[in-house]
């Protein structure tokens, strides 16, 4: 029988106040095992206080071929950034 453990992605919160960050992946037969493995593999040196695991196949990723239409239109919307607006230097706390 050829029965390979699926791949899981591991997200770890390093400490409270921070977001979960992608740490890497691993293989596990089920979610419980994925959590346990993630704990043993990715937090050996106290790197985390919380773990998320998600089976890799459940992640929908954008296609880099579409990067142009997805991300470039935002580039010229400079009015979304504070530096777009001219204010005299005397105005403080803004």
């Amino acid at each position: 029988m050829k029965n390979n453990w699926p791949l899981w992605e591991v997200f770890v919160r390093s400490k409270n106040g921070l977001e979960h960050r992608h740490f890497g992946s691993l293989h596990a037969a089920d979610a419980e095992m994925a959590l346990e493995n993630a704990r043993d593999v990715y937090t050996r040196r106290s790197e985390g206080v919380s773990i998320w695991v998600v089976e890799s196949k459940n992640i929908t990723a954008s296609n880099p071929d579409n990067n142009g239409e997805l991300f470039e239109p935002a580039q010229d919307k400079i009015y979304r950034h504070p530096t777009f607006y001219d204010l005299p230097d005397e105005v403080k706390h803004m």
């Binding site: 453990w5 691993l26 293989h27 596990a28 095992m33 346990e36 493995n37 043993d40 593999v41 050996r44």
Partner: peptide
């Protein structure tokens, strides 16, 4: 039996 279990056992 797998790298993951190896690491767990060592822990």
């Amino acid at each position: 039996p797998s790298l993951e279990t190896d690491i767990a056992g060592t822990n």
